[in-house]
Amino acid sequence: MFKEVLQSIEGVEFYTIVSMMIFILFFVGMIIWLLKVDKKYIKTMSELPLEEDNNEFSNLTGGTK
């Protein structure tokens, strides 16, 4: 069943190569972007989980003294 579905797609082998290329290009693009990205942005991002602590019960330390 699965086999028939796949066979009915024209040039299905070609899709595997194209998909591989899409990924490689995406990955390379990501690396280039990472090298050029603004440091301030990275800093903001990495502090996201900590910042909402202001709204919380900041007197608590999860029981660790």
């Binding site: 699965f2 796949l6 591989m20």
Partner: peptide, 14 residues
């Protein structure tokens, strides 16, 4: 994730 799966399955089934 589909890319990888297709790459793995297509030849196996065809």
């Amino acid at each position: 994730i589909i890319i990888a799966s297709v790459f793995e399955f297509v030849p196996m089934f065809l």
